[in-house]
Nucleic acid binder design. Structure first.
Length: 824
RNA sequence: GCCGAAGUGGUGGAAUAGGUAGACACAGCAGACUUAAAAUCUGCCGAACGUAAAAGUUCGUACCGGUUCAAUUCCGGUCUUCGGUACCA
């Protein structure tokens, strides 16, 4: 029998597919179009790792499965090539980010091709190339013109020694990963995208998306809508005021102090002379903390009294103003009215500093004078609230807000936790921001016709306080598009999340240098029908892409609301130790040795069989050999089958053949039915299990004497087996398809259908229970009446031993499954 | 801390409009073939008690409790692990 040589065969088919243009998409035909997309990869020095394979290989199986259902597939792949790692690598080794990135991209493309996927390589893209980032800059300009891009101050991680901005991951326990210096939070002028303008729509749009519920939930919580009131407090002996946002205006009379974020603009202004030194010292400590630290409720509360007092607008009471790091300047107004009796954090703070705790909400069944041992944060009845006593929380919220509004001291307000998207980076390896600053005209957008603002190659990366581009004179110095006078360019670059927020729009239009995306093609081919990628992007990339889509729609460029109609997450493959794969932990597993030893098909099937696609799990490879064996078994079954139906011409039917044949047809249909349903849902492991059952059954049939094997049966079963396996092991299946006498690609065929009528067996097993415990299993004809089944169960000898002498209370019959007899 | 998930044999994993827990595999054990090994094939394979062997009984889906004739599935609580927490992508 023929031996299967995967090395030759896989290479051969990859070549044939490429040369015949099998995976090229015909964009003129949008009937039955299906845009399948996986999150593109960052071309890191670690090359393609198992995580990529785990994302891409099964998704490709899904795409091929869909192709065999007659869909016109568009399945592109590209590179998210700008980013921090290349720049860090450059700082460390001196290798230019462009050089290392280009090298990695070439290498990874070769590795991607080994997967044998249906990628249309004519439509690939690389976000670090001018012909891509030109349009990233164009996108920035569109948002800028619409007023969705603006500049403001925001804190960044700053290493005082290196004089450079650090990414969160470069901060290790509050210190700089390069030099170990204590990192501080420093304010810099930065560009933002106004994603908050779309908060409500981003929230509402979630409902109609075919996305995992958990992802929608995460975005929902991330956007964090809360309904409440904004209340203005006046500062005593001053004309200054500040606003607080609260979801509990009903507790306003329980406010015993106010707290400002240390960064609040009033914090120092209102502080009295004798407290200024303390406030300054406190602020110096706070800049050392990350937001994560500050939000941690397990830390003991800290804070300092400013010496100033605020006037409670509802009763003119004077209450002290403190500053504390548990109030964040980025949420709400950066100031809170503190109601220790009814807010956990305020309660803790009040305990630490001995501030008064005044109960204003009464919990049902408790007394007014009972002291609180912890904050009571639920609704209740108002007490100690002059003029509002006896009201329920819900009504009081409304009434108090109304009263404030009449006095111009407050109003109902919806607040979102979502913050605007900070898009500027003080780095080199990213797209330049297409803005210049003119001495006369101020901030001016670069003209669209002058795009791209090219990222220069010859720069100095060494961190020394300025963005690398700031030291590049010919880049920085330019002329104003308005007045032609002297101007300087923005020297920051754009967040790489911008590159990935619109790349799905670009793919079908790759090659068109006139526009970011062709209007006609986009209308026909977008949005993405199925998007596959990691759940770790839930609240960033996936939210940004939704925002950009909506913004471009409002600008008139797009006719749809959502970029990704349906979404599937592959699980994370962790190291064998269960921890995230990372170079520093030394637990990274690469695909090469597996592909080298067993071939792409085996590795694909292995990844799909050994993990639940959406779960992932720790790496383990004990079953790779088993899959290799299974594939050989399948291949040999096909070869043997071909031998049978090509040479067998004296078939004699026997009773045994009839029985085996009918069993084989049952398993064939049952397997195909399972494979259809499971593959559709990305449940590849169970689909492959059904395939294994079919192969096992085929071997059983082959154990009949040669002359008793029906060649027609064998031909049908083998043909369907090969077709069904094609999306899973594409190279092998093409080869087997050829062995079966076909000349064209198997992927032009239809996925084999199954016969629903053959899925029901005549006899079913019925479980007999007494008091919920299984006591007997019987064979019975399908669809017997409930009464009859009940009688059979009650008259069963074994069952009688459990029911004799007992009172039968109830009999539950689940058709074709089970009978439960309840006795006492 | 907060938000979102997950926890099932020695292992990877099946099964949830509540209805036979462990499909399909791996590892292991026993056997066939072989001079032998590999490869291949066949059988057994959650635990305890029980039996010469069966039969059988009880327990068992992280832990504690609840709802129900019936719970891996639904509800409440606890623990552990993973993802995110706004400059990793």
């Amino acid at each position: 029998m023929k031996e299967y040589n995967f090395k030759e065969v896989e290479k051969k088919w990859q070549k044939i597919w490429e040369e015949s243009g099998l995976h090229k998409t015909d964009f003129s035909e949008s009937k039955n179009k299906l845009y399948v997309l996986e999150m593109f990869s960052y071309p890191s020095g670690n090359k393609l790792h198992n995580g990529h394979w785990y994302n891409y290989a099964p998704s490709d199986t899904w795409a091929r499965f869909k192709k065999m259902q007659g869909f016109n597939i568009f399945h592109p792949m590209g590179f998210d090539a700008f980013g921090l790692p290349a720049e860090n690598f450059a700082i460390k080794t001196g290798v230019h980010p462009k050089d290392s990135t280009d090298k990695n991209t070439v290498f990874m493309t070769e590795q991607l091709k080994q997967i044998g996927a249906t990628y249309d390589w004519e439509k690939t893209l690389d976000t670090s190339k001018e012909n891509y980032y030109k349009w990233t800059q164009w996108l920035f300009l569109q948002l800028y013109k619409k007023g969705l891009a603006y500049k403001a101050n925001a804190p960044v991680n700053w290493c005082p020694k290196d004089k450079t901005v650090l990414a969160n991951e470069q901060v290790i326990n509050g210190t700089c990963e390069r030099c170990g210096t204590q990192v501080i939070r420093k304010k810099l002028s930065q560009w933002f995208f106004k994603i908050t303008d779309y908060a409500e729509e981003l929230l509402e749009g979630l409902e109609k998306l075919d996305w995992p519920e958990k992802t929608k939930k995460m975005q929902f919580e991330w956007i964090g809508k809360s309904i409440g009131s904004e209340i203005e407090f006046k500062i005593k002996n001053s004309d200054k005021t500040f606003k607080v946002f609260t979801t509990r205006p009903d507790t306003l009379l329980g406010a015993t102090y106010c707290t400002l974020a240390p960064e609040h603009e009033l914090a120092e202004q209102i502080t009295t002379q004798e407290n200024l030194a303390k406030i300054k010292a406190y602020k110096e400590e706070v800049v050392k903390l990350s937001e994560l630290d500050r939000l941690s409720a397990s830390r003991e509360k800290t804070g300092v009294f400013t010496g100033a007092f605020a006037i409670n607008p509802i009763n003119n009471e004077e209450i002290p103003i403190w500053i504390s790091d548990y109030v964040l300047v980025t949420y709400g107004t950066g100031a809170v009215m503190a109601v220790p009796a009814h807010d956990e954090r305020d309660f803790e703070f009040a305990k630490v500093f001995g501030l008064p705790i005044r109960k204003v909400i009464l919990q049902k069944g408790t007394k007014i004078e009972t002291e609180l041992s912890e904050a009571y944060t639920e609704n209740g009845t108002l007490v100690n609230s002059h003029g509002f006593d006896g009201m329920e929380s819900v009504l009081a919220k409304q009434k108090i807000t109304e009263t404030l509004k009449q006095n111009g001291k407050g109003e109902a307000k919806i607040n979102y936790r979502l913050r605007d998207w900070l898009v500027s980076r003080q780095r080199y390896w990213g797209s330049p921001i297409p803005i210049v600053n003119c001495e006369k005209c101020g901030e001016v957008a670069v003209c669209e016709k002058d795009l791209p603002v090219t990222l220069p190659y010859d720069v100095e990366f060494t961190p020394d306080g300025d963005s690398p581009l700031a030291k590049h004179k010919t880049f920085k110095d330019t002329t104003c598009p308005n007045c032609n006078g002297k101007a300087i360019r923005e020297v920051d670059t754009l967040d790489t999340f911008i590159c990935s927020s619109w790349y799905y729009l670009r793919y079908p239009s790759v090659g068109n240098d006139e526009v970011a995306f062709d209007f006609e093609i986009t209308k026909k081919w977008l949005p993405v029908d199925r998007y596959v990628g990691g759940a770790e992007h839930a609240t960033k990339h996936l939210l940004y892409a939704r925002f950009v889509t909506k913004a471009l729609r409002d600008l008139g460029f797009l006719g749809f609301d959502e970029p990704f109609l349906s979404l599937t997450h592959q699980g994370t493959i962790t190291g064998a130790d269960g921890r995230k794969m990372s170079k520093s932990l030394g637990n990274v597993i690469n695909p090469e040795p597996y592909v080298e030893e067993f071939g792409s098909d085996v590795f694909r099937v292995y990844l799909m069989f050994n993990f639940a696609f959406e779960e992932g799990g720790p790496w383990e490879d004990s079953q790779v050999k088993a899959i290799n064996k299974f594939i050989k078994r399948l291949y040999n079954a096909v070869q043997n089958g071909i031998l049978v139906f090509e040479t067998q011409n004296n078939f004699v039917q026997t009773q045994e053949e009839k029985k085996a044949g009918s069993e084989l047809y049952y398993v064939l249909n049952n397997s195909l039915s399972g494979i259809w349903k499971d593959t559709e849902k990305f449940h590849f492991n169970t689909a492959i299990a059904r395939m294994m059952e079919l192969v096992n059954e085929i071997y059983k049939y082959f154990s009949l004497p040669k002359e008793n094997q029906n060649p027609a049966t064998v031909r049908e079963v083998i043909t369907k087996l090969v077709l069904a396996f094609a999306p899973f092991a594409p190279h092998l299946s093409e080869e087997m398809w050829r062995d079966l006498g076909n000349t064209d690609s198997i992927f032009k065929e239809s996925f084999p259908k199954y016969d629903e009528s053959k899925l029901q067996k005549e006899m079913v097993e019925i479980v007999l229970q007494v008091n919920g415990k299984i006591r007997e299993k019987i064979e019975a004809e399908r669809d017997l009446g409930t009464k009859l089944v009940e009688e059979i169960a009650l008259s069963n000898e074994k069952i009688k031993t459990f029911t004799d002498g007992k009172q039968i209370l109830k009999v539950i019959v689940v058709p074709n499954k089970l009978v439960n007899i309840v006795v006492r």
